[in-house]
Design a protein around this nucleic acid. Structure first.
Lengths: 230, 230
DNA sequence: TCGCTCGGTTAACAACGAATTAACAATACT
DNA sequence: AGTATTGTTAATTCGTTGTTAACCGAGCGA
């Protein structure tokens, strides 16, 4: 079970690779982006994270701009800033909203892990409540538990299947481009991952057969559309 | 996914040919013009670009004049200037609006490609938002979702059909030249693509039958005009 | 360590569909 | 009338997609 999905934005390649490895060892799912633009892109395309770790010093769009932009859409998810020692505290303070916090570089892994722990525990308390259940036609979909209720029957999905279904559902009755799906769920877009996506679509279609109002349509050369009532 | 369309204005033939090739290899759709006059012409004729790359030193109308003229109609699209090393920064600074930037010659391809990436990604982020719906007579056109609502009926367009319809709509009640359509949507203009265009026009006409105030007129030897109310 | 299971990817091949090309009729210009 | 352009439908082509099965590495228990 994945503990949490972290979006980690850091332009220093060596440092980021190291950190990412470390976090993954701890059981976190880490999506690493080297700049603000690619980070924003994954977010825009519907990827959902439990925590953002943003380096403050980034080329083009810096950590603050990034945070500001994120906050326009998502006021919930905590942000952890990584700032240089010399950074004036007040800029960070000015941006901090609720749970946000920062660590000054250089930091130790322990320090980082500790902050993360604290963060996630805190926001977990805030959310927790009932596992969200969405209705897709006559099918009930528990994303967190990877369960699909089809009348009396219960099907267990894999994480990927659930992610893809959720992504389609969030954009239901709209055209979703292949490349956006791949970017959001796989993090990259190449021929083979594209074929993989087709395989998953094929599987989801089988689940959808339970309610024939549900259809995953293909838009040739463009992407897919989950057609469902409501 | 439609590739990004770049208008590249550069009078040095060797350099421009090289650059164009390179950019096309990267999957961009490049329209190259050797002077300001012809560049302005394609723009006036309704071609829509995602990025302008303008050499500063051009005969007749230079890059700055060109940019100024472009900005009168189009304040959105980013402009990338190519300037000689010796160029005073302040002139460029004075012209830069928002996202614009410049590269000094000589530049490496990597440098150029990087800038382009950054630009395009940025403007992509800026747009996104809700699917825009345009009304063409009694027909509602959701470009992003490739949908045409004709009263209760719903038709799904192909990407090309949608692109063409959008192009005509953006220049509605105006004559659009065949060559400009081809340049803008196909990136090149030859006999066969021209026939292909005719086939698409024919299809769009069928869709337009739903509201008989809509007409796609042919201007013999020149192009088409989408006539619609408003 | 071996072999099993599981999820995801890759392979293979059939089926499909959008865009192009072809063909021919209709129309406009000279 | 004669030629070029356009309208329209049909045939062709070739990349995209659907689907099933094989493959492969990670994790796990014997």
């Amino acid at each position: 079970m994945v503990k949490a999905h972290i979006l980690y934005v850091e332009d220093d390649e060596t440092l980021s690779m190291l950190t990412q490895e470390h976090l993954e060892q701890q059981g976190y799912l880490v999506t690493h982006k080297i700049d603000g633009k690619s980070a924003l892109e994954t977010i825009r395309n519907g990827a959902a994270y439990d925590l953002y770790i943003l380096d403050v010093m980034l080329p083009e769009i810096d950590g603050f701009d990034l945070a500001t932009t994120i906050r326009r859409k998502d006021i919930e998810t905590p942000i952890l800033f990584l700032s240089a020692k010399s950074m004036k505290e007040d800029r960070i303070q000015g941006l901090r909203i609720g749970a946000d916090d920062y660590i000054t570089k250089p930091y130790s892994m322990e320090e980082l892990l500790l902050k993360i722990e604290v963060f996630l525990r805190r926001s977990k308390v805030r959310q927790s409540t009932a596992a969200e259940v969405v209705s897709i036609g006559d099918i009930e979909f528990e994303y967190q538990n990877l369960i699909l209720h089809q009348g009396g029957e219960e099907v267990t999905l894999t994480q990927r299947e659930a992610d893809l279904l959720m992504f389609l559902w969030k954009n239901r009755n709209q055209v979703v481009r292949r490349s956006d799906i791949l970017e959001a769920l796989w993090g990259e877009d190449d021929y083979f991952l594209g074929r993989s996506l087709d395989v998953f679509i094929s599987r989801l279609r089988k689940y959808c057969k339970f309610d024939d109002r549900l259809k995953i349509e293909n838009i040739h050369g463009v992407g897919f559309k989950l057609k469902c009532p409501e």
